[in-house]
Write a protein that binds this DNA or RNA. Structure first.
Lengths: 227, 227
DNA sequence: CCTTTTATGCGTATCTCATACGCAAAACCT
DNA sequence: AGGTTTTGCGTATGAGATACGCATAAAAGG
């Protein structure tokens, strides 16, 4: 048997509690004291199971996602597409995920499972192993970045639904000097940033689909040149 | 004339000083006190010119970049390619940029100038205005995300040059269960993560080029289907 | 059943930071 | 010179991370 007093909590419990706080009040509300209180423990008790707050954040980042979804049968393209959308959904459910600073390459079980899932989607393709990794990294990267944008914009929009996009178009009109920034000025003048729905959920999703389409198209072309 | 005491510093000075600190010691070292000391002022003096630390961070984010580079003559593809690389270089020069939380759509003059520059690269193409914005957003997003990865990996590598990648491959071997993650296990077994140069600057650059190539390829295909 | 060993729970104390508040100094106006 | 306005900044407050050490609980040995 193991000696010593039995632990009443473990790292997983702490992670869960921290995630609950982040879900409810954002990552900024996650302090060691707050998490401890949430669990009915003292602040310093947490440090027996977690080296530092940074470590807790890393644990949270890996636990933030569900297991990767089952991918549809069929083409690699459909698989990667639904993988990417699932990942975007995952991030959107826990927007605070994006605020956690990455400290190194992923080693958490969940992250690796997602990695594996995407690699699996490329199984039948004639890509070399290195290329597969590159493709998945690139896609991950894209989804991550797009999610960041999407969350930032949606948040700004929700804080101020009516005015947000209109004001943005307006502000751009003031700032953008047609001489210095001719291309942008043309777009602004065309009213692309004036639509009320520019930053709402549907439109952001459409933007994501478009970018995703471009990336997958690129992969397809690359594969085509290989076969 | 303007009334009152003359300001001895302005927001731009503060931003400059803050950037100097971040360049030298990372974003974590940027505190109001530290920046003030750097300028030979008192901490609270800064608050006359900057509403909060968050605002300072936003200013830093916009001032972090040089003006967008002149793009080469020729195809949109070459232009966007060199734009993307310039942006990556910009971020690599100021890695702390990635740690600054975005609070809304960009309004800073530098950010907008970069936006304009990329839009200008698409001038001759048959894309609609909305598509152009989508393409540029997507590319920005991709570069941003790839830069994040690249910085995180390079940093981990520099902290521990010799062991880093070898240990990573090793750790993956321990964690990855071939039953649960068959695709990943295959890649790990193939030794893709064991190369010493996996995470060094050159290799990361090659990864970026590959992903960029895929994305541009996708855009080309999209344009092709349009013309 | 009592002592020894070992790991946990956690109270206390310290240090770093952001920032509110208010006073004093400087520069302009009349 | 006296009034007005704006800046520079000293002091104070409160939040948050975390080092340290003691008390406690649980198992092992006698």
């Amino acid at each position: 048997m193991k000696r010593g007093r039995k632990p009443t909590i473990d790292a997983a419990d702490i992670t869960r509690a921290a995630i609950a706080v982040a879900d409810a009040e954002g990552l900024a509300a996650v302090s060691m004291a707050r998490v401890a209180q949430e669990m009915g423990n003292a602040t310093m008790a947490l440090y027996r199971h977690v080296k530092s707050k940074d470590e807790l954040l890393t644990l949270m980042a890996d636990a933030a996602f569900d297991a990767p979804p089952a991918l549809p049968d069929g083409e690699w393209r459909d698989k990667l597409g639904s993988w990417a959308k699932a990942m975007l959904d995952g991030i959107r459910k826990r927007p605070w995920f994006l605020q956690i600073p990455m400290s190194g390459p992923p080693t958490g079980p969940k992250s690796l499972a997602w990695f594996d899932s995407a690699l699996g989607a490329l199984e039948g393709t004639p890509l070399e192993v290195g290329e597969k990794v590159g493709v998945v990294m690139g896609l991950m990267t894209f989804v991550h970045g797009e999610a960041w944008l999407s969350v930032a914009l949606t948040k700004g929009y929700e804080d101020n639904p009516a005015q947000f996009s209109r004001e943005y178009g307006q502000r751009l009109r003031e700032i953008v000097d047609p001489r210095r920034m001719p291309a942008l000025a043309k777009i602004v003048a065309a009213g692309v940033f004036d639509m009320d729905d520019l930053f709402d959920a549907d439109d952001v999703a459409a933007d994501f689909d478009f970018g995703l389409h471009l990336f997958l198209e690129g992969i397809a072309t690359h594969i085509g040149g290989r076969a």
